[in-house]
């Protein structure tokens, strides 16, 4: 009899749990996000299609051209070294850690890549482990082709990796709202920016205001506070946002990431940092003063040169980031 009672309780629990999850107000609108409406992507192609922003280019040609020059457009491939670091992360990280569950590349799941993809490809969270596997295989094949000089395979896999990036929909939809219980979940079919109303696009017929589109917190989602504690094995890549908050804003700094990296430099969506001549010029003052002197070392004279260097960081964060 005891056993039967237990089964009834379990059966009730199974029925009640989904109901309770839907009954509350928490997460209202979560079911209308791109990921919720389309379900998880099962292939890289599906994931690319899910966050396809190629139609934006039709009207926003200049912005698209700017974005293409930015690191955001190649966030997985990078210079090739970024993609290679995914392999290193699995090889020197996950495979060496006793509790990661990864002994072979074939065991890599989305969660094992999230230390990198949380920022390099946030939308991977909306994909199945099959996509993580496909991505890992693409990186391994690309690297092998590079080592073997197999140009055709290299280019094919490079193209696949380049199709995975931080595109319009990542910043203007998926990550456009940080406080979702306050401001609502980003909805499929809506482009978030600084205006609201109709948007002449079949796929995105509406515009809505993101309260953080011009705020540093938008960028801070990826540009780093320190250890990513939400992960089961925290990683740390960028720390620029942490420095911005505690060493710049806390000291009275007032400018936002966007003001320096997009507007003052005129770079727009070609957001650059240490590679761009304009950003380098604006980043710091560098003064060198030098003079000679006859230093008297006891009874002997040791002539010496003195070189004084003064560097003033004019940005809103520590240099370098890391």
């Amino acid at each position: 009899m005891k056993s039967n009672s237990l089964w009834i309780v379990l059966a009730l629990a199974l029925v009640l749990v989904p109901f309770l999850a839907l009954a509350g107000d928490e997460g209202t609108g979560r079911d209308k996000t791109i990921a919720a409406k389309q379900g998880k992507a099962n292939t890289i192609a599906e994931l690319v299609a899910m966050y396809d922003s190629s139609s934006c280019e039709e009207c926003h040609l200049d912005i698209h051209a700017d974005w293409l020059k930015s690191a955001h457009s190649r966030s997985i491939f990078g210079t090739g070294r970024t993609a290679a670091t995914f392999r290193t992360t699995i090889l020197n990280g996950c495979m060496e850690w006793p509790y990661s569950g990864v002994k072979e590349f074939e065991e890599v799941k989305v969660e094992h890549l999230q230390g990198c993809t949380k920022c390099h490809l946030p939308q991977l969270a909306d994909a199945t482990d099959e996509v993580a596997q496909e991505m890992m295989n693409t990186i391994l094949t690309f690297m092998k082709a590079y080592q073997e000089g197999d140009t055709e395979t290299f280019e094919k896999n490079k193209a696949t990796l380049l199709s995975l990036n931080i595109n319009c929909l990542v910043c203007h939809n998926r990550n456009a709202i940080v406080h979702k219980w306050t401001d609502g979940y980003p909805q499929q079919g809506v482009v978030y920016g600084s205006m609201e109303g109709e948007h002449p696009s079949d796929d995105f017929p509406a515009m809505a205001k993101s309260p953080i589109m011009k705020e540093s917190i938008l960028c801070g989602q990826c540009h780093g506070l320190g250890p990513n504690f939400e992960l089961e094995n925290p990683t740390q890549c960028a720390t620029a946002y942490g420095s911005y908050l505690w060493a710049y804003k806390a000291e009275g700094g007032r400018e936002t990431c966007q003001e320096c990296h997009m507007h003052k430099t005129g770079l727009g969506h070609n957001m650059q940092s240490y590679r761009d001549p304009g950003m380098i010029e604006a980043a710091l003052d560098f003064d060198v003063e030098a003079y000679g002197m006859h230093w008297r070392d006891g009874s002997l004279v040791s002539p010496k040169a003195v070189v004084k260097v003064a560097m003033t960081n004019k940005t809103g964060h520590s240099i370098p980031d890391g």
Partner: peptide, 12 residues
């Protein structure tokens, strides 16, 4: 690192 809005001086 070079802290924001501070001057770091070196002497060689």
């Amino acid at each position: 690192g070079l802290p924001p809005h501070k001057t770091v001086e070196e002497r060689f």
